[in-house]
């Protein structure tokens, strides 16, 4: 099962390391990463596989939400269906 992690906020050292580290810790496999920086605003989107993750997605959402608070960034961990529903007919 796939999920999306979005990370938005002010750029700083070690964001990718911290987020991918948290993925590894919970057995979440990173499939794709896109990131860019626009006018100092960092945005990263990770498509991940949660088939073998050690917890449910709502719990992962809470874990990554707390990581976001720690880093001062908006981090969301969600299933992909919302984005498909909103933007595809």
């Amino acid at each position: 099962m796939k999920a999306v992690i979005t990370v938005i906020g002010k750029d700083r050292v070690g964001i990718l390391a911290r987020v991918s580290g948290a993925c590894a810790e919970h057995n979440v496999n990173v499939l794709e990463v896109t990131q860019n920086i626009l006018q100092g605003l960092f945005s990263m989107i990770m498509v991940v596989d949660v088939t073998n993750a050690d917890m449910e997605i709502d719990q992962l959402a809470s874990v990554f939400g707390k990581l976001g608070e720690e880093l001062g960034m908006d981090i969301r961990f969600t299933r992909t269906e919302l984005y498909e529903a909103m933007h595809h007919i």
Binding site: I8, I45, D74, T80, H87
Partner: peptide
């Protein structure tokens, strides 16, 4: 196929 801009637009609509 997920599009980066689509994802960011959804997040912006929800958060902002």
């Amino acid at each position: 196929m997920l599009n980066t801009n689509d994802i960011l637009e959804s997040i912006r609509m929800i958060s902002d």
